[in-house]
């Protein structure tokens, strides 16, 4: 006779899995990857491959020797961390620094908390911020985009529009003056600007975001509330003093706002659980970003803003519970 399996209900499962979620995000990142390869050539491929390989390798090591559990490299989360880290680096970044960044991202950002699901901070951002603070020169040396040039020779490098803006406005110039030389909004939209691998093309990132929304990997709450709050607050500043503050469209299209809003802040592990909490989280990131960009020492504030809000997630989870059924009785 057959030995039947016995368990509590439910006896069926949706077939959803961690792998599917992780690879879904990776697929959503591919358009942006293609754009960066198109503009930054072999450098982009090099940085991406090194970051992914190093992340997977460190994940394996930590899991094997520190946590002593079953290997988790198959679940795709290490690949995703590596890819996201690479997206936050310039294409001319030295290989050994990438490896150090991966070590910090995986080792400190993720495995030291016990591996996938337990990390309070987005691992890729931990790696990026570590690199930004440790190697500021290399991290802000952005090669200019060249179409389809496949060589490893260093291309011309220059500052990003944001850094340009910060520097010139800091020197007392007006925004209009400072932004004379920057690429047009259309170039920013399709990605023909200097910057980290993944952040340059707004279009590619939005395509990825729509894919994830359709696959229900992310919900709209975080990206929309984050981008919305940035647009509103920046618009207020812009209206108050257009000479000192750039317009919201400029901010949204440059730097890592879209990458952050769509891929970084929505990281499941480090974002709040309830829709209400997610909106609070998104708005918090948006406000912090605007303040750091306009008043802080760094031209770019998204990663800091996300990390700061990451640390508040447990509190947000506690304060914003979902609407319980039968809580407010509305008997019509």
């Amino acid at each position: 006779m057959n030995k039947f399996k016995v368990s509590l209900s439910p006896h069926v499962h949706s077939g959803n899995s961690v792998n599917k979620v992780m690879y879904g995000v990776i697929i959503a990142l591919l358009p942006a990857l293609f754009v960066s390869v198109y503009y930054f050539g072999l450098g982009a491929i090099k940085v991406t491959l090194v970051a992914i390989a190093a992340s997977v390798f460190f994940e394996y090591l930590f899991q094997r020797f520190m946590i002593k559990g079953e290997s988790t490299i198959g679940d795709g989360s290490a690949i995703l961390t590596g890819l996201l880290l690479a997206f936050n680096l310039p294409s001319s970044f030295p290989i050994w620094m990438i490896i150090v960044g991966s070590l910090v991202a995986i080792g400190i950002g993720k495995m030291s908390f016990g591996g996938l699901g337990n990390n309070p901070f987005n691992p890729a951002l931990v790696g990026r911020v570590f690199l930004l603070i440790s190697f500021p020169v290399d991290m802000t040396n952005w090669p200019k985009p060249q179409e389809l040039v496949f060589s490893l020779v260093d291309a011309d490098s220059g500052a990003t529009p944001l850094a340009l803006l910060k520097e010139k406005v800091g020197n007392g110039e007006t925004v209009a003056n400072a932004l004379k030389d920057i690429p047009s909004y259309f170039d920013s939209f399709i990605g023909q600007v200097g910057g980290s691998l993944g952040e340059v093309s707004a279009a590619a990132l939005i395509i990825g975001g729509i894919y994830m929304l359709m696959k229900k990997i992310i919900s709209w709450h975080i990206p929309v509330s984050m981008i919305g709050s940035i647009a509103v607050l920046q618009a207020i500043f812009f209206l108050i003093n257009p000479d000192k503050f750039a317009d919201p469209a400029f901010h949204l299209l440059t730097g890592g706002i879209l990458l952050g809003a769509i891929f970084m802040a929505t990281d499941m592990v480090t974002s709040p659980m309830t829709p209400k909490g997610q909106i609070v989280f998104g708005v918090g990131i948006g406000l912090l970003t605007v303040f750091i960009r306009n008043f802080g020492a760094y031209p770019e504030g998204v990663s800091f803003a996300i990390l700061i809000m990451n640390s508040l997630v447990p509190l947000i989870n506690k304060s914003f519970t979902p609407k319980r059924f039968g809580e407010e009785v509305t008997n019509g």
Binding site: H11, V18, L116, G117, M268, T270
Partner: peptide
């Protein structure tokens, strides 16, 4: 289709 899959850690996907 009867068996349950291996349990993974919660990824807090909500």
């Amino acid at each position: 289709e009867a068996g349950r899959e291996k349990i993974h850690p919660c990824i807090r996907c909500a």
